[in-house]
Amino acid sequence: MIGDLITGYGFWNPLIWIIVMATGLLFAWLIWRCGESGYDKGTEQTKPYLSGNDEPPKSDVHIRGGNMYWGFTHALKGYYDKLIPLHSGVVNDYLTWFVIGVIVIFVVVMVI
């Protein structure tokens, strides 16, 4: 069939995928249409409701990039504590890794 990408085990056809997704979206749209439209722009309704408190300034609401995946890096602290210092920024270390790589690969290739 046109668009079949044979991957060894099966195939991937983006056209079928798009047709399926489009059908799904069509159903979603049909269901959405059945809903009741009670949304009015520019009224009290659209304002965020935070238990009656005032809305904080916009710059405080946004979650900054540095705060994301804090948990992930914290959970892998042992790994990151070892990994990050390796990227020391000293160009001598970079070349040391090159020499180590040459020696290790050479030994591996010669021994095996």
């Binding site: 790994y79 990151y80 990994l83 990227h87």
Partner: peptide
């Protein structure tokens, strides 16, 4: 990829 995750 693990080095990319915590980059700022």
């Amino acid at each position: 990829v693990t080095m990319a995750l915590p980059q700022k």
